[in-house]
Design a protein around this nucleic acid. Structure first.
Ligand SMILES: [Mn+2]
Ligand SMILES: [Mn+2]
Ligand SMILES: [Zn+2]
Ligand SMILES: [Zn+2]
Lengths: 138, 138
DNA sequence: GGCGGCAACAAGAATTATTATTGACTTGAT
DNA sequence: ATCAAGTCAATAATAATTCTTGTTGCCGCC
């Protein structure tokens, strides 16, 4: 996700209205490193904005994903996690405590993935998910 | 997945009964490179075994996954694909035609992933999914 | 042969996250 | 001020998976 100013600038220029609900979701997500679910976002914001509805959270998340300001991650079976960091990075999921940890590979150090083609197929994105046991649980 | 003989040997030794339903699912999966969904497996086997039930397919798949004879893949939003190849390989998903293509990285050639630790967290498995446009659709 | 225990089964209901729909109301942008 | 867009609330639709319940068929034992 871009900065608050850049993000709302993008929304404005794409013709979206800057409603308080949308702004609250955006403010919640900017700088958030916890990969929250829609339910968690709703639960947290509901405290401050008691009239917020679940559909609005979903609608806003889907809208933000469409303009590439967030990405949704399929890390668990039954729900999605949302990540405001749409840059190239990977995730580690602890099988024991379910925590999600960002992995930022330094160039060539830990993870190297092909750019462009693999046997004639054009790669446009790559998702890498590690599963294991986190530092804390070890 | 192992050979038919090895697989049913494992089932026998783990105390599972070799029922016709289970054997039909196993036979369906062995050597299958198509990453079928539970629904596809059910639909195909239903022709030959009209009394087969959906839950039995699911139960059998879960049982096979537990003893590591298949793996389930979260490649799409709403369903799982099952892969009888539990060896280390990755997947390419075509955004246009939804086809799934196996990627077998030769050592160090295209993909290299860390074994063991990443900043103190113990990695036990890694899932890599490429998305893009396949040879056919290009 | 008859019986009890038991795993697996079929059928379908239940669950659950997400998406879609409705209709009345509110609000942001011009 | 106007009005299209967004919101809320409630509810329904969707769809993959899991759960429940009663039934079946096999096996060992009397
Ligand atoms: Mn992340
Ligand atoms: Mn595969
Ligand atoms: Zn942990
Ligand atoms: Zn294709």
């Amino acid at each position: 996700m871009h900065s608050f100013e850049t993000t709302i600038g993008r929304l404005r220029s794409e013709g979206f209205k800057l409603t308080p609900q949308r702004l609250s979701v955006i403010r919640y997500l900017i700088g958030n490193k916890t990969h929250p679910t829609a339910a968690v976002i709703y639960g947290d914001l509901k405290k401050k904005y008691p009239s917020l509805s679940f559909s609005t959270v979903y609608n806003t998340l889907n809208m933000l994903e469409k303009i590439d300001e967030v990405q949704s991650l399929h890390l668990f079976d039954d729900f999605l996690n949302y990540d405001p960091d749409t840059g190239s990075h990977y995730h580690f999921v602890c099988r024991s405590c379910d925590s999600i940890i960002d992995i930022f590979p330094r160039n060539g150090e830990n993870v190297s993935l092909p750019e462009g083609d693999i046997s004639g197929n054009r790669i446009e994105s790559a998702q890498v998910v590690f599963k294991g046991t986190c530092k804390n649980c070890l």
